[in-house]
Design a binder for these strands. Structure first.
Lengths: 67, 67
DNA sequence: TGTGAATATAAATTCAAA
DNA sequence: TTTGAATTTATATTCACA
């Protein structure tokens, strides 16, 4: 299925363009773009995409593509 | 106080030398090296050290120094 | 296969205290 | 300031099912 791949690409785009700190935040953003998913699915996407969660200079954590 | 800085250096050494997946694991390793701390403290250390948790190729997550 | 609901596990934070 | 105990919050996993 391509819904999954599309969604994962959207995730990459989202985190590249704005700081996203939690999976719940990501769920909301995805919803704005027409993707309806739950936290369990996001968690799996993040794992597959090998995203990392890093604490920024300001102390806020942000998801990003590790490399 | 230097206990904190010493402990944080030990943390950096530990994660550099073996894969550590969780804060509880880190607590155990630190204990082996004479440091007695709780998860709350480790969480703060990790934040200060700006460590990242990344999912490896094998699917296991590991803490590492982001850069 | 991919997903959601429920649950388990991990991690961050609050609040008191040394 | 730094910490631990308790708690909240976030994330990963299990289990059933389309």
């Amino acid at each position: 299925m391509n819904a999954r791949k599309d969604r994962q690409n959207q995730i990459l785009t989202l985190i590249a363009n704005e700081p996203i700190a939690t999976q719940d935040e990501l769920i909301l953003k995805l919803r704005e773009h027409g993707y309806e998913v739950t936290q369990a699915t996001i968690s799996r996407d993040i794992k597959e995409l090998k995203l990392i969660k890093q604490v920024g200079a300001d102390g806020k954590s942000v998801y990003s593509a590790g490399n």
